[in-house]
Amino acid sequence: MTNGDQPRVAATDAALAFLAEIKQDHPEILFHQSGGCCDGSSPMCYPVSDYRVGETDVKLGEIGGVPFYISGSQYAVWAHTQLIIDVVPGRGGMFSLDNGRERRFLTRSRLFDGGEVCPLPEMARSSGTT
């Protein structure tokens, strides 16, 4: 990235430490930003083998070496927003790997300003991987 470039998804130090803890138990994982009614702003963390990435999902980038996806329809709404993954006390989503650890991931956000350049994300391939 050049000066002024910003990633579309970033993580706090606390989120990266929590992610490293989860990766000790589950080395091959991915994130998908939930858009469902139950876990609204929760990024869901799944074993790669347990989640099929949809062909309209958008890969925003990676955090801690873990790919981060969002649905195409959600990306259309949040295209000018940087997602910042953080950790707060609580329980994770029912099927997310952060569940049962008394902490959970949370998505915070900020709008890109007019002077920032952010790389365009890639669409997921129909095979379910990128």
Rank of each mutant, 00 (worst) to 15 (best):
T12M: 08
Q82M: 07
T81V: 12
S127Y: 05
F112V: 03
E122A: 15
S71G: 14
I84Y: 01
I29F: 05
E55H: 14
V117K: 08
L111R: 14
A15S: 08
G36D: 14
F31Q: 00
P27V: 04
R108H: 11
V48C: 08
Q82R: 05
Q74E: 15
S127A: 11
Q24D: 14
L120Q: 14
Q24S: 13
G100A: 03
V9T: 03
F31M: 02
R108I: 03
G115C: 06
F105Y: 00
S126V: 05
E116M: 10
G115M: 07
I63A: 00
A15R: 00
Y46I: 09
G72A: 12
D25K: 13
F18T: 01
M123H: 14
F105D: 02
L97T: 00
S126H: 05
Q74G: 09
F18I: 02
A10N: 06
D57Y: 06
E62F: 09
R125P: 04
T81C: 10
P89Y: 02
G4N: 14
T107A: 13
Y46T: 08
H32R: 15
T81E: 08
S127V: 05
P43G: 10
I70G: 00
S71W: 07
F105V: 01
S127F: 06
G54Q: 04
D98F: 01
S73I: 10
S49G: 11
C37D: 15
S126I: 02
F95N: 13
